[in-house]
C-alpha cells in the first residue's frame, strides 16, 4: 500500500489539533483550573505545557516521521522487544473510542432535542431518568435494556467516523477543514453570549481569580501535568500515526508548539464560555457560583441545558450551536483514535483499506452497545478511570524512557532540529529523560496507592477488578500476542 501524505502543513496541524482538542477542553479543563487555584493554575499549567506537553508532542511527531509507520512499528524501531508497547497504546485508544463514540451519540441526541429544548424544566431527571434510563446505583454492573435513541446515535457516529477516515489522510484532510475551525467559531459566539449575560463577570472571577497559595500544593502541579498529558492525545499512538503521513523535510518542533498552544488556547476559551454562563446561572438562581459548578457529562448534559433554557432569547439557536460544537470537538478525537489503529495494522491486512475500516467501525459499533444500555454509564466511568489513570500513563512513561535512554534523546533531538523552523536545546533531553518519567512515575504511584486505599467510585469491587486490572491485562496479552504473531518489521 502506498504511503499517503498530508496535502499541506496546515492540514496536518489542523488534524493534530483536532485530535488533541476534545470534549475535555470544554468540560474538564475549566473545572480543574477552578478547583486548583483558579487563575493561579495557569502557571503550573503553562509550565507543564512547555516542559512536558510540547516535548512529548515533539517526541511522537519525531517517531512518526522517522519510521513513517504506526506506533507498533515505531516501538519496534526503538527496540524490537518493545513492539508490544505500540500495540498496547493503540488498543487502549481503541477501547476508549468504543465508549467515546457513545458520548458522541448523546451529543447527537441532544442536538435533536435542542430544537424543542426537550429536557424541559428538569434536565437532570431528563438526562439520567429518561435519556440514559440509568439503573439505580446499587445495580451498577447490570446492563438493563438497550436505549434505542442512544443506539441510533451510536450508529450515526460510526458512519460519520467511517466517512471521515475511509480514504485516509485525503478524507481526514477535508473533514478537519470544517470540524476544527467550526467549534472554535462557535466557542467565540458562546463566549460573547456568555459575557453579555448578567452575573457573567462573577462566574469568570471564580475561574480566573488567582489563589497563589495553591501553587505550594503538589496536588495542583500533578493536576496541571495530568491535564496537559490527557489533553494532548499523547500515548495513543495517534500523533505517531499522523506524523507518519508528513513528507520528508517537514517541520517537527514548531508544529508541536503550535498544536500544544492551540489546544491550550481552546481549553482556555472553553473556560471563559463555561464560567460566564455558570455566573449567569448562579445569578438567576440567587446562589453563589460554587453551588452551580460542575464538570464532565453533568456540565454538558445537565447544567448547560439548564442555562440554555434560561437564556432570554434564541435559546434553541444557542442550544443547537452548543451541541454542534461538542460534536465537532469530539469527532476529530474519535476518528484519530481509529486512524491510529488502522495505521498500526495496515501493513498486515490483505483487503482494501475501505473494506477494512468498514469492518473496524462495525465491530466497534457492536462493542459499544453495552455502553448504550441502562447500566452503560457505570461501565464507561470505571473503564475510563483505569485506562487513563494507569494504561495511558504507563505508555507515556515507557515511551519517554525508551526514547530518552534506549534510542537516545540526543539522536531524536538532532533529527527533529534538522528540518524544524527552530531548534530545541538540551533542555528537551532533560525533559524526556528525567522530568517526564519522574512526573508520570509519580502519577502512576499516586493513582495506584489511591486505588488500593479506596475502591473507585464506590462501585462493587468485582466491577473495579473486571473493568480495571483484568481489562488492562487482556489488552497487554493481546499486545504481546500481536507483537509475537505479526513480526513483519519496518
Amino acid at each position: 500500500m502506498d504511503h499517503q501524505h498530508w496535502k499541506n502543513r496546515g492540514v496536518f496541524i489542523l488534524a493534530a489539533v483536532g485530535s488533541a482538542v476534545g470534549l475535555g477542553n470544554v468540560w474538564r479543563f475549566p473545572y480543574i483550573a477552578y478547583s486548583n487555584g483558579g487563575g493561579a493554575f495557569l502557571i503550573p499549567y503553562f509550565v507543564a505545557l512547555f516542559v512536558a506537553g510540547v516535548p512529548l508532542l515533539i517526541l511522537e511527531f519525531s517517531l512518526g516521521r522517522m519510521v513513517q509507520k504506526g506506533a507498533p512499528q515505531a516501538m519496534e524501531y526503538i527496540k524490537k522487544e518493545f513492539k508490544w508497547l505500540g500495540w498496547f497504546a493503540i488498543l487502549i485508544g481503541s477501547t476508549i473510542v468504543v465508549y467515546y463514540a457513545v458520548i458522541m451519540s448523546w451529543c447527537f441526541g441532544y442536538l435533536i432535542y435542542s430544537f424543542t429544548l426537550k429536557w424541559g424544566a428538569n434536565p437532570e431527571t431528563f438526562f439520567y431518568g429518561k435519556y440514559l434510563g440509568l439503573l439505580p446505583f446499587e445495580k451498577a454492573g447490570h446492563f438493563g435494556g438497550v436505549q434505542i435513541p442512544i443506539l441510533i446515535g451510536l450508529a450515526v457516529t460510526w458512519i460519520w467516523i467511517f466517512l471521515s477516515i475511509f480514504k485516509g489522510v485525503d478524507s481526514v484532510g477535508k473533514v478537519v477543514l470544517v470540524t476544527v475551525p467550526l467549534p472554535v467559531l462557535i466557542l467565540v459566539i458562546l463566549i460573547i453570549r456568555g459575557v453579555t449575560l448578567p452575573g457573567a463577570l462573577d462566574g469568570l472571577n471564580y475561574f480566573l481569580s488567582p489563589n497563589f497559595k495553591a501553587l505550594l500544593n503538589p496536588d495542583v502541579w500533578i493536576a496541571a501535568f495530568s491535564q496537559v498529558f490527557f489533553s494532548m492525545s499523547i500515548g495513543f499512538g495517534i500523533m505517531i500515526a499522523y506524523a507518519s503521513y508528513l513528507p520528508d523535510g517537514s517541520d517537527i518542533n514548531n508544529n508541536a508548539l503550535l498544536a500544544g498552544l492551540l489546544d491550550a488556547l481552546i481549553a482556555f476559551m472553553g473556560g471563559l464560555a463555561v464560567f460566564s454562563v455558570l455566573g449567569y446561572l448562579a445569578y438567576t438562581k440567587g446562589v453563589a457560583v460554587p453551588e452551580v459548578v460542575t464538570s464532565g457529562p453533568g456540565l454538558a448534559f445537565i447544567t448547560y441545558p439548564t442555562i440554555l433554557s434560561l437564556l432570554p432569547f434564541w435559546a434553541q439557536f444557542f442550544s443547537v450551536l452548543f451541541f454542534i460544537m461538542l460534536l465537532t470537538l469530539g469527532i476529530d478525537s474519535a476518528f484519530s483514535l481509529v486512524e491510529a489503529f488502522v495505521a498500526g495494522v495496515e501493513d498486515y491486512i490483505k483487503i482494501k483499506r475501505e473494506t477494512f475500516i468498514a469492518i473496524v467501525c462495525f465491530v466497534a459499533f457492536i462493542l459499544g452497545i453495552p455502553f448504550a444500555t441502562r447500566g452503560g454509564l457505570y461501565y464507561l466511568d470505571v473503564i475510563d478511570h483505569y485506562l487513563t489513570s494507569f494504561g495511558l500513563i504507563f505508555v507515556g512513561l515507557l515511551e519517554s524512557i525508551l526514547v530518552g535512554w534506549v534510542l537516545g534523546s540526543n539522536q531524536v533531538r538532532e533529527f527533529a532540529n534538522l528540518t524544524s523552523d527552530f531548534k530545541i536545546g538540551k533542555w528537551w533531553d532533560i525533559s524526556i529523560k528525567f522530568i517526564i518519567p519522574i512526573i508520570l512515575g509519580a502519577m502512576l504511584i499516586i493513582n495506584f496507592v489511591n486505588s488500593i486505599n479506596k475502591v473507585y467510585g464506590g462501585y462493587p469491587l468485582w466491577l473495579n477488578i473486571v473493568a480495571g486490572p483484568v481489562w488492562i491485562a487482556i489488552l497487554l496479552t493481546i499486545s504481546l500476542y500481536l507483537s509475537y504473531k505479526l513480526r513483519k518489521g519496518v
Binding site: G38, G39, L42, F46, L204, N205, L208, N254, L261, F268
Partner: peptide, 30 residues
C-alpha cells in the same frame, strides 16, 4: 472581576494567542 482575575486573563491571552501567532509567523516567514 478582581484585578488578579483581569491580570490572569491578559497573561493567558498574551501567552496563548501571542505564542500561537508567533509560531504561525515562524512557519510562514520562509
Amino acid at each position: 472581576m478582581s484585578a488578579g482575575a483581569w491580570i490572569m486573563l491578559i497573561f493567558a491571552t498574551v501567552i496563548l494567542l501571542g505564542g500561537s501567532l508567533f509560531s504561525i509567523y515562524l512557519a510562514i516567514r520562509k
